[in-house]
Amino acid sequence: MSEKQPAKNGISKRTLLATILILFIIPVTILFGVFVLNDRKYYFISLLIIIYTMIPFVMVFENRKPKARELIVIAVLSAIAVAGRGAFFMLPQFKPVVAIVIITGVCFGAESGFLVGAVTGFVSNFFFGQGPWTPWQMFCFGIIGFIAGILYKKGFLKKTKLSLCVFGGLATFFIYGGIINIASMLIFTSQFSWKALLATYISGFWFDMVHAIATVFFLYTISQPMIEKLERIKIKYGLIETEDEAVSL
C-alpha cells in the first residue's frame, strides 16, 4: 500500500535519528557539560537535550514534504490554541492549550499532536514574549500531544470523555508540571539540588493543579464536539485520507 509507506518510513527514520541522538550526541553533550561548563551545566545539558528531542520530529516532517491541507490543520489548531486563551481572558490560569493538543494527537496522530503542541508553545510566546522558558514549553506541549497520539494508536487511550480526562489531568500535572518545574528551578537558581527541586514542586503545586483541572474541564466539555468537528472536516474535505498521494499521519 502506497499509503502506509511514508508512515513506516517516517517511524523508522525517526527511530534511527533518535538512536543516533540517544547513543551519541546526548552523551557527548552531557560529557561536554560536565567537563567544560561548570555552574550552568544542568541548565544547558537539559536545554540541549530538550532541543535534540525536537529535531527528529522537525526533520521527518520537513522531509515528508507536507501537503497543503496538513499544514492548514496544524496551523489552524495551533492558532485556535493560542487564540483560545483569549476566549478565557476572564479566567486566569485557565488555558485550553493542553486539551487541544491532546485532541489533535488523538484525531490526527502523534506527529501532528507534537507539532501542534510545539508550534503553539512557540507562537504564543511571540505574543506573550519569548524567554528562556520557550523551548521547555514547546517540548512539554509537544510531547503530551505525541504521547496522546501514540497511546491512542496502541489502544490505551480512547476517544471517550473519561479516558481523555484521566490522561489529560495526569499528563498536565506530571508531564507538563513535572518538566516545567525543573526548568524554572534551573532557570532561577542554576544549581541543582533535590531540596530546591522539592521546594519548586511544592510551590508550583497549586499552579499545576489548576492547570490540570483546567485541562480536565476542557477535555470534559469540548473533547466530544471538537472530535466531531475534526472528523467532519476530515470526511467533508477528504483532509488527510483522500489527498492525492495520501500521507497517513
Binding site: V58, F61, E62, K65, P66, L71, I72, I74, A75, S78, A79, V82, L115, V119, F122, V123, F126
Partner: peptide, 10 residues
C-alpha cells in the same frame, strides 16, 4: 514547512 506554518499561525 514549519516556517510556513509559523507564518500561517501568525
Amino acid at each position: 514547512g514549519l516556517s510556513l506554518i509559523l507564518s500561517m499561525v501568525l
